Simulated assay, not measured.
Amino acid sequence: MAELDFISLVHKQTSRDYVARVTEYPKAKAAEKAKLWDYDYWDGNRLTGYGGMKYDGRWLKVARAMAAHYGLKAGDRILDVGCGKGYLLYDFTLAVPGVEVVGLDISSYAISDSKEEIRNAIVEGHARKLPFEDNSFDLVVSINTLHNLPCYDLDLALREIERVGKDKKFICVESYRNESEKANLLYWQLTCEAFNTPEEWDWWFKQTGYTGDHGYIYFE
Rank of each mutant, 00 (worst) to 15 (best):
E3D: 06
F6P: 07
I7H: 02
Q13W: 05
D17K: 03
R21S: 03
T23I: 09
Y25M: 11
P26D: 12
K27L: 13
K33H: 01
K35A: 00
W42Y: 15
G44V: 10
Y50E: 03
Y55H: 14
Y55P: 12
R58S: 14
V62I: 14
A68H: 14
H69R: 14
Y70L: 10
Y70W: 07
G82E: 06
C83N: 10
K85H: 08
L88K: 12
F92E: 07
T93K: 13
L94K: 15
V99F: 12
V99Q: 10
V102N: 04
V102D: 09
G103Y: 02
S107H: 00
S107K: 00
S108M: 01
S112L: 04
S112H: 01
S112C: 00
G125D: 06
E133D: 15
D134H: 13
L139V: 12
L139S: 12
V140A: 07
S142R: 06
N144Y: 02
L146F: 15
L146Q: 08
L149H: 01
D155H: 09
E162L: 06
R163K: 14
K166P: 08
F170Y: 15
V173D: 03
E174V: 06
R177H: 07
K182H: 13
L186I: 11
C192H: 11
A194D: 04
N196Y: 13
E199A: 11
E200D: 11
W201Q: 02
W201P: 09
D202Y: 00
D202N: 04
K206M: 08
K206H: 09
T211I: 01
D213K: 06
G215V: 11
E220R: 01
